[in-house]
Write a protein that binds this DNA or RNA. Structure first.
Lengths: 144, 144
DNA sequence: ATTACTGCAAAGCATTTGCAGACTG
DNA sequence: CAGTCTGCAAATGCTTTGCAGTAAT
């Protein structure tokens, strides 16, 4: 997010730590944990403390610039830029790798409820299973 | 889960703590946290230590008898009996009421992944929004 | 200059782990 | 009676918080 980038939220002070966090997220095509963001920021010689990263993420989530996702069976939240894309992920039950889904089952779907009048704001979908690599191991395990 | 209940997983030793955990889950119509399960088990005069509850839940999840869910922005996992119903719910953001959905968006849907070879075992869907009653209040709030 | 932000340390809290004694099959 | 499970305590790991010094506007 460059200077003058209009998507920098209004009234939010620029600090090198905040720009650094945003920069890491901009250069990632998958959601990252706070720890990973901190590690990558340090690599770039931008020292950012982990607690600061959490504070910055909390701020940007509140501002709507970043989204936070809690993944089942993973004990860490992951964060990504809110690119206003509607996206869901699959998680490998073994290696916890997160794989992007390119479409959404709610497109062209009309939900039917047991009670009328529910106003949907959004949804969260989580797909679980085994990734290519872990499935091999999984079935190898079953064979023996 | 009574004695001789065929759904008790094969080869799993019966202990009063395990039966107690399952009993709490059987008598609940909503998913419970480990702490809540522990509390309810204690109420029934069945002393179960919290760490034991976690070990028991881990075992039953592995055996497929129980499912674990992490709820967004809640820092506790919740557990429920795996009733083998394929069902999704909508949760009201205000009153937390849970409303059943009668269909599933994954019927007749072919997911597309950014990486090939992911083997889907299942999915979880969380729909959020406002129920009929809370929506009225919500919009009343916005007007004033 | 004023107010907000960060470094750092330390606390919080759900969950996990280690170990010795208790219990199940 | 052998191996597993539990009580208990202590550790772990992610996340939050408190505080004093630092930086942004």
């Amino acid at each position: 997010m460059q200077k003058n980038n209009p998507s920098w939220p209004a009234g939010i002070k620029r600090t090198k730590q905040r720009e650094s966090v945003i920069s890491v997220l901009e250069n990632s095509d998958s959601p990252l944990s706070a720890m990973e963001i901190c590690r990558q920021a340090k690599t770039k010689n931008n020292s950012v403390w982990l607690s600061t990263v959490y504070r910055i993420l909390e701020l940007f989530v509140r501002e709507g610039v970043v989204t936070r996702t809690d993944i089942t069976n993973k004990d860490m939240a992951v964060y990504e830029l809110n690119r206003h894309l509607h996206r869901h992920y699959a998680v490998c039950l073994r290696c916890k790798r997160v794989i992007e889904m390119n479409n959404c089952p709610f497109d062209n779907f009309v939900p039917s409820f047991s009670e009328s009048g529910f106003h949907i704001f959004g949804h969260k979908i989580e797909i679980y299973g085994y990734c290519k690599d872990c499935e091999k191991l999984f079935f190898k395990g079953k064979e023996s």
